[in-house]
Write a protein that binds this DNA or RNA. Structure first.
Lengths: 204, 204, 204, 204
DNA sequence: GATGAATGAGTATTCATTCAT
DNA sequence: CATGAATGAATACTCATTCAT
C-alpha cells in the first residue's frame, strides 16, 4: 500500500506513484546512505545523483533527518511486506521462520538499497529522530518475536537471546556477502539450519 | 599475559612506553570512533577530548586515516590477545569455542572502545586504507577459523557459513547490548549454546 | 571589437551577462593573484575582497585552480583582443610588431590585473591545470610568431630566439615599471627599436 | 670569499665551509624556493629535504625571511662573482657585455639554484626584507650599468631602457629554457647579437 | 646542534540549510 | 517545483614558529 503523503493529484489509484521526484530522491538517498553511510552521504551528493541542486531537495524533505526517516520508513515497509508475503500459506513454525529469514535476507542483500538502511546504526542523529526510527522498526521486530515464540523449544532456551542471535547472524551478512556465490535464500537456510539441527553429538 | 602497554606502575621495566600523549590520543580516538563513527568523529573532537588543538594531533598521526589504522591495530591486538589468553589450558573444542566467544564479547562490550572499532565497516576510507585494515584483521579471523575447524561436526555442516554465522551473532551484540543485564560471558554462552545444542525435536 | 562582456549599459542586447557576482569575483582574484601571487592569494582574501564568505566563492568556482583558469582565460582573451585590435589597418611588418608590442604592454602595465596573471609562472599547480593554461596561451603566442615571421630579416637571424627575446623584454617590464614616467607605448617602442635599428657601428 | 657569519672554528682559512649544516640547508632552501616559489616552499619541506625537523632549522636561521635573505645573498654573490670572473682580461665593450650576459645566463640556467632565486619577485615579504633584497642586488645591477655605459652607442639610445631590455630578455629565459638544446652561452650570444647587429634593412 | 611536542592562525574545501525569485 | 546565490560553521590539514630539554 502506497505511503502517499502528498498530493496524489487528479488521477488516483495508481499503485505507488503520485510524487515522482520524491520517489527518485528517496531511491538516491537510500543508495547513498547504504554506500557511504548517513554522515558521509551529503545532501549535495544525493541531489546531484538525481540531477537536482541541493536546495531543491528541501522542497521535498525539510531536513536530512527527515529524508533518513522517509527512507527508513520505506525500508521497514518493504522488508515487512516481503516477510509477510513469504509467510502466506505456511504453518509449520520452523518452516515459517526459515521463510521469514529468507525473505529478510533477500531484501537485505538484493539490489534493494532500502533494506540495508534499516539495519544500520545512526549514532549521530538527535534523540527524537532515533526514537522515530525505533518506533518504525518496532512492528517489524514484533513480527519476528512472534515467529520465535511459536517455535517448539526446550524450556531452557531464552527466546529473547535466540531472536537477537538470529538477527545478528542475518544482519551481519551485508558485511561479507558478495553476489555470485550462494544466494540469500541458501544462506538463510544455512543459518536457520545451524539453530534448528543439533551440531554436537552427531558427527556421523 | 599482556605485552606491557598498560600502566604497571611508575617506570617498571616497560619496553615501549614513554609516548604518553600518543596513547591518550589513541584512547580518545577509539572512544569517539565508537561513539560517533569514523566520519562523524572529527579531528577537532578528538583533539579537544585530550585538551589539544586540532593541529597538534598531526604531530602524532599524520592523517585521520593513520589514526584509524593505529586504533584498529591496537584493537585487533587487544581482542586477539584476550582470546588467546582465554584459550590457555583449554582443550575440548566446544569449550575452546565458548571461551573464545566469551573473550571476544568481553572485549567488544566492555569499557574497551578499541574492540568496537574493529568490527565496524569503513565505507568511505580509501582502498589502500581498507586493505591495511583487512590485513590487520586477517590473523584474528584465522584464529577463529581454526577453532571452528576443530569442532566435531556432521559432514553436512558448512564451516565457512558457521563461522560467519557465529561472528554475526557476536558482532551484532553491540547494537542491542546494555550493561546491567546478563554480562558478555553469559551472552556468549547462550549464543554458542544455540549452535551446540539441538533446539528442535526436544521440547520436553 | 569586443565580444560584449563589458558593461554596455543596462541590459543592452548582451548575450552573456547577468552573472554579475562571478565577474566581480574574477576581478578580485585577478588583482590578488597579481599583487600577491597565486599561492599567497587565499580564497579568504579573494572572498572578503568582494564581501563574500569563503564558502560562497565555491558556488561560482569549484576550486581555486578553476578560478585561476578562469582569470587566465579572461586575461588571454583581453590581451589577444587588444593586440588584434591594434593590428587593424596596419601592414608594414615592423610597424605591426611595434603596434602589437605596445598593445601587449598596455595590457600588462595598465590598471588591468588580468594581463599580469597571464605571464606569471605557476610552479605549484597540478599538471592538468598547467596544461590548460598552456593551451589557453598558445593561440596568443602563435599570433606573435606570425608577426615575427613576417619581418624581413637577415637569414642568419633565428626567429625563435628573437621572439623569446622580445617576449622576455616585454614581460619583464612589470618587475620594474612604475607609472609616472614613460608609458607602455613609449617603452614598447624603445624595446622594438633596440631590435630594429643598429646599435653598433653608428655612434654618430 | 666566504661569507662566514658564524663561528668559523679552530681551523680558519678553508675556502667556504665552516658551517656545514647551514650550507646544506641553504642549498635545500635555494632549490625549493626555485622549484616551488617562496610561499609554497614551507619550512617543513626545507627541513625534511635535509633530514631535519622543522624546529631545528631555527637554530641556523631565525625566520623564513632570514633564510630567504641568506639564499638571496649567496645567489647575488655567486652571479656577481661569475660575471666578474668572465670579464677578466676582456676590454672590448660589446665583447665584455656578451661575456657578462653569458656568465649571467650560465648561473641562471645551470644546476645552480641560487641564481634563479635572485631574479624572482617576492611580493609577500615585509618591506624591510624587500629593502634588504634590493640592497643586495644593487651592486650587481651597477656592474651591468657600467657595461652598458661603456658601449659606443648612438646618442639617441636610452641606456636605462637598454639595460632593462637586456635584463628582461636574459631573466625571462628560465621560463622557457629546457636543457638539451642550445646552452646558456649560445642563447646569451643570440640575445646580445639581436641588440648589437642591425636586424632591419639587410635582409640579404 | 637538534629534538619532541606543541601552538594559534591559516589553508582549501564541504556541510546542511535558507530564501527570494 | 526548482534554481541561484548565499550563509555560517565545520571539515581535514598545513603554516611558521616556539621552547624546554
Amino acid at each position: 500500500m502506497a505511503i502517499a503523503q502528498a498530493h496524489n493529484g487528479p488521477d488516483a489509484n495508481m499503485p505507488q506513484r503520485a510524487d515522482n521526484r520524491r520517489d527518485v530522491l528517496l531511491d538516491a538517498a537510500a543508495r547513498l546512505f547504504r554506500e557511504r553511510g548517513y554522515d558521509a552521504a551529503s545532501m549535495r551528493h544525493i541531489a546531484s545523483a538525481v540531477g537536482m541542486l541541493p536546495g531543491s531537495v528541501y522542497y521535498h524533505f525539510s531536513s536530512k533527518d527527515e529524508l533518513l526517516c522517509a527512507v527508513y520508513e520505506e525500508g521497514v515497509r518493504r522488508i515487512h511486506e516481503a516477510v509477510e508475503d513469504a509467510l502466506t500459506d505456511r504453518t509449520e513454525p520452523w518452516d515459517r521462520l526459515t521463510a521469514a529469514a529468507a525473505a529478510h535476507l533477500e531484501t537485505l542483500l538484493g539490489d534493494n538499497d532500502y533494506g540495508a538502511v534499516v539495519i544500520r546504526p545512526y549514532p549521530t542523529v538527535p534523540d527524537d529522530v532515533r526514537d522515530q526510527l525505533i518506533t518504525l522498526r518496532d512492528g517489524y521486530e514484533t513480527l519476528f518475536r512472534g515467529l520465535i515464540d511459536a517455535l517448539p523449544l526446550p524450556p531452557s532456551v531464552d527466546r529473547h537471546y535466540l531472536r537477537l542471535h538470529l538477527f545478528g547472524a542475518l544482519n551481519w551478512t551485508p558485511t561479507w556477502y558478495r553476489p555470485g556465490g550462494d544466494g540469500p535464500r541458501a544462506i538463510a537456510e544455512q543459518i536457520v539450519g545451524h539453530l534448528r539441527h543439533p551440531l554436537e553429538g552427531d558427527p556421523s
